[in-house]
């Protein structure tokens, strides 16, 4: 389990993080590797400093946002969240970036599949094209940053385009990395109308949803009382259905 540090020729042992049966992280391998430094002298031979190189691996916990990244990577779906607390002034507000808890009432929000909304309605709100990047960048340059707006979503989503040139108001659709890195960089955007064969290698559109994926049909004709009972027993879909009925009244 060895690997070479980028552009250095330095070989370090690999690393692996797992979750223990107690729920903590277990780290194994090279999470921190020391690399020798060098002194810095000026022309007159005065010591002006020293370099202190190191190789360090961070872990990012996804916590309550893990569901978004799982759906992104495994299902090629985009999840938003929505506040369902009818007492909250933010009741009904939908969020992408996915946030687990409502910024108004602090209660856990409900995940919503918004993939079709993205395919049908996403537009570039603003953008910038940058020729430069910082250390550790993995995106091809120039980077076409876009902020995307979706009707019904109270926030925007920052992402990037891998095909075409961005402009304000441009209709874009999401594409997903087939060999995922389990990061937000696995999601990118292309102009509406891009054909599958035009996508660069390693990217795909999401599959079209099938009818059996739409649980809305399951609750047709179910009385309100029965729905409340089901929701109280923890049926998430029943809770959603109550929410929609409330909204439509």
């Amino acid at each position: 389990m060895k690997k070479q540090l980028p552009d250095t020729g330095i070989i370090v042992p690999g690393h692996e993080a797992t979750v223990t049966n107690k729920g903590g992280y277990h780290f194994e391998g090279a999470f921190s590797t020391i690399v020798p430094g060098t002194p810095i002298m000026d022309d007159e031979g005065t010591l002006r400093g020293v370099t202190k190189p190191r190789y360090m691996v961070y872990v990012h916990s996804y916590g309550g946002e893990a569901l978004f990244f799982e759906a992104l990577v495994r299902d090629h779906k985009l999840l938003a969240t929505r506040c369902e607390n009818s007492k909250c002034p933010g009741h009904g507000m939908m969020y992408l970036p996915y946030r687990s808890h409502c910024p108004d009432c602090g209660l856990k929000m409900t995940p919503i599949d918004m993939t079709e909304l993205a395919y049908n309605e996403a537009k570039v709100y603003t953008f910038v094209v940058t020729e430069r990047s910082g250390a550790y960048n993995t995106l091809a340059k120039p980077i076409r940053f876009i902020d995307i707006e979706f009707p019904g979503i109270i926030t925007f989503l920052k992402s990037y385009m891998i095909l075409g040139e961005p402009s304000i108001g441009l209709r874009v659709v999401p594409v997903f990395r087939t060999d995922p890195t389990f990061t937000i960089e696995d999601l990118a955007w292309v102009p509406e109308g891009t054909k599958p064969e035009e996508l660069p290698e390693g990217w795909t559109f999401s599959a079209l949803p099938s009818d059996d994926e739409d649980p809305a049909n399951a609750y047709e004709g179910v009385p309100d009382k029965e729905l409340v009972r089901m929701a109280n027993e923890g049926d998430l879909e029943a809770r959603q259905e109550i929410f929609f009925r409330d909204c439509n009244e």
């Binding site: 569901l67 495994r74 999840l79 918004m114 997903f176 599958p196 795909t204 809305a216 879909e237």
Partner: peptide, 17 residues
């Protein structure tokens, strides 16, 4: 659209909204 069928179903039953 064309894309591989998801290998793993999401943990929640998703609803189009």
């Amino acid at each position: 659209r064309k894309g591989g069928k998801p290998e793993i179903r999401s943990r929640i039953r998703l609803k189009e909204v």
